[in-house]
Amino acid sequence: MNIALKFWSGYVRATHRWPIIATIVPFIPVVAIWSIVANSGMFPRAFFPAPVDVMRSFISLTYKGILPDYLQDSLIRLLFGAAIGVALGIPLGILIGSSRLAHRICWPVLLFFQAIGDIAWLPILLIWFGFGLTTMTFVIVYTVLFPIVLSTVLGVQSVHRDLARAAQSLGASPMRVLWEVTLPGALPNIITGLRNGLGYGWRALIAVEIIVGTSGIGFMMFDARRAGSTVEILLGMIVLGTLWYIVDAWILAPIERATGQRWGLVTS
C-alpha cells in the first residue's frame, strides 16, 4: 500500500513537471490489455492483431512512404476544405448575426441543411463531380461551414450592445465597428466553432475517403478492409486518433482558452 502511494505521488509530481506524461501513461494499460488479449489466442491473429503487428506495419508503411503520402493527402484536403469553410462561414455568420432580416431568412435554411448532413450529399455529389477532389472538398467545406456559421452568429449576438454603441459614439464607422468590436467580440465563439468544425470535418474526410477514396488515411483503412488486413485498419485508426489529439489538445484548445481568458470572456 505504502509503495503504491509513493508511486502515485511520484506520478503526480512527474505529470506536474512534464504534462505529456499524463497524456501518455493512460494508454499504457490499454495497450497492455490489448496485447494480452491478442496474444492469448482468444481471437485469430489476423482478426485481432497485437500492438507489435501494428507497430511493424507502421514502420514498414512509413519506410515505403505510403503512410506519409496518405497522411499528407488527408491533411491537405482537410486544410483546404477548412480554409474555404472559414472564408465562407465567418462573413455569413456575421451577416446573419447582425441583421434581423438575414437571420429570419437564413436561420431555418441553415438548420435544415445542417440536418441533412455532409454524408448524405455524397451520392448526388458523385453524380455531379465524379470520384475526385471536388467531391471531397465540397463535403469538407459543407461540414466545416455549419459549426463556424452557427457559432459566429452566436458570437456576434453575444457582443454587448453597449460596446457597439460606445464605438459609434467614439466616431467609429460601421466598417470600423465590425472590425474593432464585432469581430473580436465574436472571436472566442468563432474559434470554438472552428474547433468543432475541424472535428466534424475530420470525420467527414474519413467517410469520404472510404467511399470516394483514391488515397488518404480513410482510403488506406478501407483498402485494408477489402484485403482483410486488420493491422492496417487499426494503424489508420491510431494515426487518426493521435493526429487529432495533437491538433485539438495542443493547438486548438490552447488557442481557444487564450483568447477567452486574457479578455475575461472565458466561456467555461
Binding site: 467527414a204 480513410g218 485498419i233 489508420g236 485508426m237 486518433g241
Partner: peptide, 15 residues
C-alpha cells in the same frame, strides 16, 4: 476519451 472520441462513429466502419 479524448483520443477515442474523435474516432467516434465513422472511423470504426472498416473494422
Amino acid at each position: 476519451f479524448r483520443f477515442f472520441s474523435v474516432l467516434a462513429g465513422i472511423a470504426w466502419i472498416p473494422i
